[in-house]
Design a protein around this nucleic acid. Structure first.
Length: 927
RNA sequence: GCCGGAGUGGCGGAAUCGGCAGACGCGCAAGACUUAAAAUCUUGUGACCGCAAGGUUGUGUGGGUUCGAGUCCCACCUUCGGCACCA
């Protein structure tokens, strides 16, 4: 008998399927209805030079199984493929090597095609699209024009993230920890004229839409987080000396009686006005601060951590609530683009405000009293000049405030260790490298003279008075807050209190109210007085789409000799990307170097006209491709209305977790826009979405070149064949989970396929055997299980069920008939398309492909059980099982009581009977 | 710090509604075949006690609800992902 050698036959079936066109031109199918169509969408792939990796294999196979299954179910399946072909890597490669991005991309796509085919993915290649193709980006440009017409694409001078290495503007989303997402180099702020899409117009709908979609909850949460809706109030404070006012947004107006200062962002509009009203010395001081703040690189900001800087303007606002004058400062911890770019400082109850107040010696007022210490959030801060040798001993003061008394908390020994750990963690995470002192003191001290009796120390007690004497110079002593002190001999760290609960104090009409109630009362009060207005703020900002890059779709805009923008006429689309460009990292848009581009504009529009040299963010390309798939060759529409009506939306979208925020948000935005323009009726493009997990390296870490733990699918195929690779990846675990690659686990699926190979080769040709009831039942249960699991994307358990069935079939192989064996093969076909086809055609001699056969049906007769096994418990512990033919309680109990083992447990005892029909019987002994 | 996910044998992972924990696979051990190895096949395999029958224990920790908890509730621990001077 021949050994199972997948590489001797797998590739020839790819040819066969292609020749017969089994999976092609699906978008042209007739009689497609919303009930019988299955549009399966896999995330648009960027064709990187390094080719396919095992992570791609997982998600593609998962969808392929579904596609093959639905075809066998007689559904109209549409399973398209395409390329997110524009983008930075190809261009960066061009700068290094001089090879044109078009060339690189073409080559990469060819590699991908070959690899995907080798895996047996049943894509509809007739629908293939690529964003770099003029027939595609023509419509990307058309989309820009539609947005422009509606005022949703506009130009804006704005500080943008500029990557020094890539020499381009980055979206906020592409800046990670102050570094460029792609190249990990420094990102600086730069003021530039940029094209922007007004996604914020749809902010509210982007939130509400999440209620309609079947997505993983975590994904929804992340989107909500990103949009960042906040309810609060804009409070207007008058600046009498400037005859102007400053508006501050806050979500905590309840604490407004505790306000002691105002801070403006360096970019705030009032800064300019202030400069006109101060003397030269002050002017210089402010200008200097604003200048350094504006030039500050993001990376410097993070390095500085929470250290607060700022400058006093010399002006005050009228705080009408308290009648006080509050000083106005400028500081870069206030961000211009957040809220109103100005905040009201409440140092008693906000961490940053507190730190700022510390730096500038501003009064701290407590207006909330927290009842429970566990609600206090803490934060460490302390002296800058501390060194390790100072840390001879260290302590924490923990106290609880009750009414007007404060008492020391009893702290169990275990907690001491926990506090130590916490302190060490805090210290190592940015303040000091090491903690030398080991002794921990727990004591308490309030603001005035109240001092409790003991210091709780590890091992010994100390009197608190002695300890407090050491802190007599406490600069915070005058404040009314209760602080926690982390103390050593000659320095202190105090811990800030920011409560989530509590009652108002020192706040006139709010006193006694709980903070949530007080928030409402204060908002009502401020609105009534006309000092403020309720406002919703979003974190989401408009989508900056300009890129000073070559390898992207040119923005279809031209400028007249006065520099005024005009749209490129639709008849000129596609607005071709010029080819006469050198790839140099100049920091300018490479398109400026094209002679042809300039000439084209002058020829079409007249002398002195110039093109827009920037190209579009590639996220624009990939935010509408799922529409294009439905009519990939249509020359008159971005997507043919019939195609959209027939196929949209995708029944399932499979996409990596890395696209959760950007791609999905942008796609949803554009879909909503297209709906408003009448091109679709959909509110949401992806009603059902699932993520594939990440496949980790054998070391349990994320695969990366630098770690050298990348698994190449080609080598796995060369050794085991594509079927084994597919099966292994599906068997690893749930699709959505992150899973480590394990070389030796591949053996399982490989042996499974080998055993099938041998089973079918040893089937007697002239089959007269009749299947036994036991095997038939096993087969039918498996059909049921596999069918359910495929739809539920639980491929790992589907495969486990088929393995079990194979075990049975081998055990009782003389009872196996040909018809049943064929059913089993069909079940496996979507998972392992090659071996099943080889056996189906070559061994069983069938004429038509197994992949066009119909899915096996469950034969109910064999599934309905005649006898059941019921576990019998005594006192919740399983002591025996009984076989029953009736689920009736009387019968079951009677039979259980006649069971010898059960008898021994129950003899002579009183008991209660609990029976859950068909599940379990429990005898509970009564004492 | 905030938001979210996850903790089950030596390993990957199973377990509808709260109802026999550990399916299926890997690995390991013993055996068969072989001169031998590989491959293949058979049996066993959570831990502890026991010759065995069997018993005890067991799903990150500590409590709780229940006849019964991996599953539900409360408080934590660990870990992964995202966001973060976001007012």
């Amino acid at each position: 008998m021949q050994k199972y050698l997948p590489n001797t036959f797998e590739e020839q079936w790819i040819e066969d399927w292609k020749k017969k066109g089994l999976f092609q031109s699906a978008f042209e199918q007739k009689d497609v209805t919303s009930d019988n169509k299955e549009y399966l969408l896999f995330a648009f792939a960027y064709p990187s030079g390094s080719g396919l990796h095992v992570g791609h294999v997982e998600a593609k196979t998962a969808l392929d199984i579904l596609a093959r299954y639905y075809r066998m179910q007689g559904k109209k399946v549409f399973f398209p493929v395409g390329w997110d072909a524009f983008g930075l890597p190809a261009e960066n490669f061009a700068i290094k090597s001089g090879v044109h991005p078009a060339e690189t991309t073409k080559k990469a796509i060819n590699t991908f095609r070959k690899q995907i085919n080798r895996l047996g993915i049943s894509y509809d290649w007739e629908s293939e699209i690529a964003t770099s193709h003029p027939e595609y980006y023509k419509w990307t440009q058309w989309l820009f024009l539609q947005l422009y017409k509606k005022g949703l694409a506009y130009k804006k001078k704005a500080p943008v993230n500029w990557c020094l290495s890539c020499q381009t503007v980055l979206a906020n989303e592409q800046v990670v920890n102050g570094l460029c997402e792609r190249c990990d180099n420094e990102v600086v702020q730069k003021e530039m004229d940029q094209w922007v899409f007004k996604i914020t117009e749809y902010a509210e709908e982007l939130i509400e839409g999440l209620n309609q979609v079947d997505w993983p909850v975590a994904t929804k949460h992340q989107q909500l987080n990103w949009i960042g809706k906040k309810f609060g109030i804009d409070i207007h404070y008058e600046i009498p000396e400037l005859k102007d006012e400053v508006t501050c947004f806050t979500t905590r107006p309840d604490t407004n009686f505790g306000a002691t200062f105002i801070v403006l962002a360096p970019e705030h509009r009032l800064v300019e006005k202030i400069l006109q009203h101060v003397d030269d010395k002050k002017k210089q001081e402010i200008e200097k601060y604003v200048e350094t703040a504006k030039n500050k690189k993001d990376i410097e900001r993070t390095e500085e951590g929470r250290k607060k800087t700022g400058v006093f303007t010399g002006f005050y606002i009228d705080h009408k609530l308290t009648g006080k004058q509050l000083p106005i400062y400028i500081s870069d911890f206030v961000l211009a683009h957040v809220g109103t770019g100005a905040v009201v400082g409440v140092p008693g109850h906000d961490l940053r405000d507190f730190e700022f107040a510390q730096t500038f010696n501003i009064e701290v007022v407590q207006v909330v009293k927290s009842e429970n210490i566990s609600m206090w959030r803490s934060y460490l801060m302390g002296a800058d000049d501390i060194s390790n040798k100072d840390l001879e001993s260290i302590g924490v003061i923990i106290a609880e405030q009750k009414e007007n008394n404060v008492r020391l908390l009893e702290i169990p020994k275990k907690s001491i260790e926990e506090y130590k750990k916490l302190i060490r963690k805090k210290l190592s995470s940015g303040y000091w490298n090491e903690l030398v002192g080991e002794e921990i003191w727990f004591c308490f001290k309030d603001t005035k003279e109240n001092i409790s009796e003991y210091v709780y120390s590890e091992g010994n007690k100390k009197e608190i008075g002695k300890l407090c004497a050491e802190y007599n110079n406490d600069p915070l002593e005058k404040t009314q807050n209760l602080y926690l002190y982390l103390a050593s001999n000659d320095w202190y760290i105090n811990l800030m209190i920011q409560e989530e609960n509590g009652a108002m104090i020192n706040s006139t009409f709010l006193n006694g109210q709980d903070i949530h109630q007080a928030t409402k009362s204060m908002m009502d009060y401020l609105e009534e007085k006309g000092w403020g207005k309720r406002k919703v703020h979003y974190k989401l900002r408009d989508w900056l789409i300009s890129r000073q890059r070559y390898w992207g779709a040119p923005i279809p805009i031209v400028y007249d000799p006065d520099g005024k923008p005009h749209v490129v006429k639709e008849e000129y689309l596609p607005w071709l990307l010029p080819t006469d460009v050198d790839f140099l990292p100049t920091g300018e848009s490479p398109l400026r170097l094209s002679k042809e581009f300039k000439e084209r504009v002058e020829t079409l529009y007249g002398k002195g006209w110039t093109p827009e040299y920037d190209t579009m963010d590639t996220f624009v390309d990939s935010s509408w491709y799922f529409f294009r798939y439905t009519s990939p060759r249509d020359e008159k529409h971005f997507a043919n209305p019939e195609g959209v009506k027939t196929w949209m939306p995708p029944n399932l979208y499979m996409i990596g977790p890395e696209h959760i925020v950007l791609h999905l948000l942008y796609s949803r935005f554009l879909t909503k826009f297209l709906r408003d323009e009448g091109y679709t009726k959909l509110d949401e493009p992806f009603p059902k979405m699932r993520h594939q997990g990440i496949i980790m390296g054998p070391d349990g870490k994320r695969m990366s070149k630098s770690r050298g733990n990348i698994i190449n699918p080609d080598t796995v195929i060369a050794e085991y064949g594509a079927d084994t690779l597919r099966l292994y990846e599906m068997f690893m675990g749930p699709i959505e989970a992150d899973k480590p690659w394990n070389e030796s686990n591949i053996q399982g699926p490989y042996r499974f396929l080998s055993r099938i190979w041998h089973l079918f080769h040893s089937l007697p040709k002239d089959q007269t055997a009749k299947i036994s009831a036991k095997l038939a039942s096993s087969l039918n249960k498996t059909i049921q299980k596999v069918t359910q699991d495929i739809v539920g994307l639980k491929y790992n358990t589907a495969i486990a069920a088929m393995m079990s069935l194979l075990n049975d079939m081998e055990k009782y192989n003389e009872e196996l008939d040909l018809a049943s064996a064929k059913k089993f093969l069909k079940l496996l076909a979507p998972f392992a398309p090659f071996i099943t086809e080889e056996i189906w055609r070559k061994v069983l001699g069938e004429k038509e492909s197994i992949h066009v056969q119909s899915w096996p049906q469950v034969d109910d007769i064999h599934v309905v059980q005649k006898t059941f096994t019921i576990p019998v418990q005594v006192d919740g512990k399983v002591r025996s099982t009984i076989q029953i033919t009736s689920k009736e309680e009387r019968v079951v109990v009677e039979q259980a009581l006649s069971n010898e083992r059960i008898k021994t447990y129950l003899s002579g005892k009183k008991y209660k009977t609990i029976y859950i029909p068909g599940k379990i019987l429990n005898f509970v002994l009564q004492s």
